[in-house]
Simulated assay, not measured.
Amino acid sequence: MDFKKTFLFFSFLAYCTFQAQTLNLYGGADQDQYLGCLNCDTFDKNSIWNKYSDYGNVYSSKSIWNTYGNYGSSYSTYSPWSSYASYPPVIVDQDGNFFGFLTLNTYKSERSELELAHILCKYHEDIKTDINGWYEKLFR
């Protein structure tokens, strides 16, 4: 195999592995508050992409999209969108494997290196205004 084919093969393999994992968010000082599924589809009741669920609704206290909530405010120590958050949400898979913190705080050790986490941090303000549209861009 040449380099390009090898790279494409391993990229595809990594993509399939990532898609097979269910990634969840937990927040709060002890990371014991479930905040939804990062890569579940828009119809899943636990999805942050389901605008009718507790985790995707911009008015829900458990949603990272609620600008005025503990987990969505740009000022809250528990929010991924606060540049100074001490307790941002953690990303874990269904087996409890840790994938880092979802946070804008560049000084937070163990900040997630997942591409999805980087996209969410970079575009979170835009995503809040079009959750379904962004889901389509990212996962379809």
Rank of each mutant, 00 (worst) to 15 (best):
G28M: 11
A29Q: 15
D30T: 14
Q31W: 14
D32F: 01
Y34E: 06
L35E: 04
L35G: 06
G36C: 11
C37S: 15
L38V: 07
L38G: 09
N39D: 13
T42D: 13
F43C: 00
K45Q: 10
I48S: 10
W49K: 14
G56S: 03
V58N: 10
V58K: 15
K62T: 00
I64N: 09
W65N: 10
W65R: 11
T67H: 06
T67Y: 07
G69A: 01
G69L: 01
N70K: 15
N70V: 00
N70C: 02
G72H: 06
S73K: 12
S74G: 02
Y75C: 01
Y75N: 13
S76R: 10
T77F: 00
T77C: 00
T77A: 02
P80A: 07
W81L: 04
W81S: 02
S82K: 13
S83F: 06
Y84E: 08
A85F: 01
A85G: 06
Y87N: 15
Y87M: 02
P88Y: 05
P89V: 07
P89C: 06
Q94G: 12
D95C: 09
D95M: 12
G96F: 10
F98I: 10
G100C: 11
G100S: 09
F101R: 13
F101T: 05
F101I: 02
F101M: 07
L102M: 12
T103M: 07
L104S: 12
L104G: 11
N105V: 01
T106V: 11
T106K: 15
Y107L: 09
Y107N: 14
S109L: 07
E110A: 10
R111H: 06
R111P: 03
S112V: 04
E113C: 07
L114T: 07
L114S: 05
E115Y: 11
E115N: 12
E115M: 11
L116A: 07
A117L: 05
H118I: 01
I119W: 01
L120N: 10
C121D: 12
C121M: 15
K122G: 00
Y123D: 12
Y123T: 01
Y123V: 00
H124Y: 13
H124V: 00
E125N: 13
I127N: 10
